[in-house]
């Protein structure tokens, strides 16, 4: 569904991504793991059209989307749940969700998607008229995910969805992602929680210093000595 081929990305003079390639099949969870500063967020932002790659191509559903601006990429059905949740703090939960449905593809399906999101996260319905900044961390993450789903995406990129959440809530979030994938959504999951994300994913990639050093199925990577040493402390 998504095909990233040999992209180079620079932030000023510093190279963030070096010949990175990635393949995300339809209805799968693909995990990208790596240390801080390895380029995971750069990769997500580049796919989302927020950075322009210096070279290489990005294809989505057999269409070249390299260099398209972010609002056009979103409108093709690529959503993202950005790192740190990024809800609009002074706007209400309902307003936050409405912001997710601003893009053209989602406008007509607003009522249906809202119903779906509220059914998935009943807590959000309870707090619909509450300012998003007053929600707990876990609720804000639910809101961020719900807001993204309001955009009617076919592929969602999750950037560190469990960051800063209580362990019990982390389980909720990951279960949500698994349920979404089972419901037909294609997911890219960037997680510091390597063991869990690789177990969840059908395919994983290891990103180190801007390069893809390893790839394979989730189980293969979990069994790989280098992964076990570097990320699982075994």
């Amino acid at each position: 569904m998504l095909l990233v081929h040999d992209i180079d990305v620079f932030h000023g003079d510093a190279q963030a991504l070096d010949k990175v390639s990635l393949e995300v099949p339809e209805r799968c969870i693909v995990a990208i793991v790596g240390a801080n500063g390895a380029g995971k967020t750069s990769l997500i932002r580049t796919i989302a059209g927020m950075h322009r790659p210096a070279s290489g191509t990005i294809r989505f559903k057999d269409r070249d989307i390299t260099g398209l601006p972010s609002h056009e990429v979103c409108d093709l059905g690529i959503g993202q749940v950005a790192e740190g949740r990024q809800v609009f703090p002074t706007l209400t939960v309902a307003e936050n969700l409405a912001m997710g449905a601003m893009i053209q593809r989602a406008r007509g399906h607003r009522a249906r998607n809202l119903e779906r999101v509220y059914a998935m996260f009943p807590r959000l319905l309870e707090r619909a008229s509450q300012a998003a900044g007053t929600l707990s961390g876990g609720e804000q993450q639910m809101l961020a995910i719900g807001r993204c789903l309001m955009g009617e995406p076919e592929l969602v990129m999750f950037d560190e969805p469990s960051l800063g959440l209580a362990p019990a809530v982390v389980q909720d979030v990951l279960r949500t992602i698994r349920d979404l994938a089972e419901g037909g959504l294609t997911c890219v999951l960037v997680e510091q929680n390597v063991a869990v994300s690789l177990r969840l994913a059908s395919r994983g990639y290891v990103l180190e210093n801007g390069r893809m050093t390893l790839s394979g199925t989730g189980e293969e990577l979990l069994a790989d000595d280098r992964v076990r040493k570097a990320y699982l402390g075994m």
Binding site: A48, M50, S70, H71, V73, C74, D75, G79, Q80, A82, Q86, V87, F88, P89, T90, L91, E95, M99, G100, M102, I103, R147, C148, G151
Partner: peptide
């Protein structure tokens, strides 16, 4: 409003 609150998040939502 989205831009006022958080321009990066607004961008991520396709605004």
């Amino acid at each position: 409003l989205a831009v006022r609150e958080d321009p990066e998040a607004a961008r991520a939502l396709g605004i």
